[in-house]
Design a protein around this nucleic acid. Structure first.
Lengths: 148, 148
DNA sequence: CCGGATCCGTTTCGATACTG
DNA sequence: CAGTATCGAAACGGATCCGG
């Protein structure tokens, strides 16, 4: 675990967006958060097989980063014992509005994407409601996990 | 101008977020868009001096990328003749909701940032109104520029 | 001077192989 | 299964050069 903070100390951030981008401004981090939010992925292997061909070392480092930054927590697998599960914290859950807006933008401007049109319609119609729904479900799950 | 698309062809994106991140998932692109939206920067030199120490080659490449992707346009300077000005297109302007949500998240979780508290309060209270205001002003500016 | 383009040393990424 | 080790490739960053 010698990774942690290498890139975040070089820019004397002066605005909330720059601060956020210090953590999220790379090709993979937000994609992992997306998988945690929309696809319900929780385990290393799921992210690996998640379609986007992330390398194992990159995935490990990003998961580590997310934990160091307090966006995610790692828990032992309830039965397996040799695997872990990753859950978003409140801080990570609070990124859902960003993901929703990013989805809407991406859906508007990139013709080919395999996103369920139903969810997109809901997002367009009432983004706050979609955010609230996802947030509630993830918070509930987090509450259960934390007690264990 | 041989740059253009080098990184975007490697990932067979399957969701709007991945598509969006293909363009925006790096350390600088969204920062430049932020400067176009919130700081009113329009010229190369402004971005360079904008505080974050971006290198000239990186800046040039990112501005080029934004133009190739249709997020920005480059116009001649009205009086100087040897400088340019960059403006967001509608596609770029549509990123404002993302920036606003990113601002709110960053402001919530990073204590030290030099963002005007007034705007943050407005964003928290009524993000849609803030988005609409910024959008209207940028669209108007774009309209004027396009006629010239 | 302004807006880049080019060169080059350094850092980070990413694919594969390997380990507990 | 969940990572680490390695190593080549790409990106970054600084400096410098160039055309207008």
């Amino acid at each position: 675990m010698k990774s942690a903070r290498r890139s975040s100390d070089c820019r004397r951030s002066s605005c909330p967006i720059a601060n956020a981008l210090d953590l999220l401004g790379d090709r993979w981090t937000l994609l992992i958060v997306r998988d945690l939010v929309f696809r319900g992925f929780r385990e290393f292997g799921q992210f690996l097989a998640g379609g986007e061909r992330i390398a194992t070392n990159i995935l490990a480092e990003r998961l580590d980063r997310l934990r160091c930054a307090g966006l995610a927590v790692r828990c032992d697998h309830p039965v397996d014992g040799k695997r872990y599960r990753y859950y978003l914290t409140e801080k990570g859950i609070d990124l859902i509005p960003v993901l929703v807006q990013l989805s809407l933008w991406g859906a508007k401007y990139t013709p080919d994407h395999a996103a369920p049109e139903k969810v997109l319609r809901e997002m367009r119609a009432d983004p706050d409601r979609v955010v609230a729904g996802l947030r509630a479900s993830l918070l509930k799950e987090l509450g259960v996990v934390r007690k264990s």
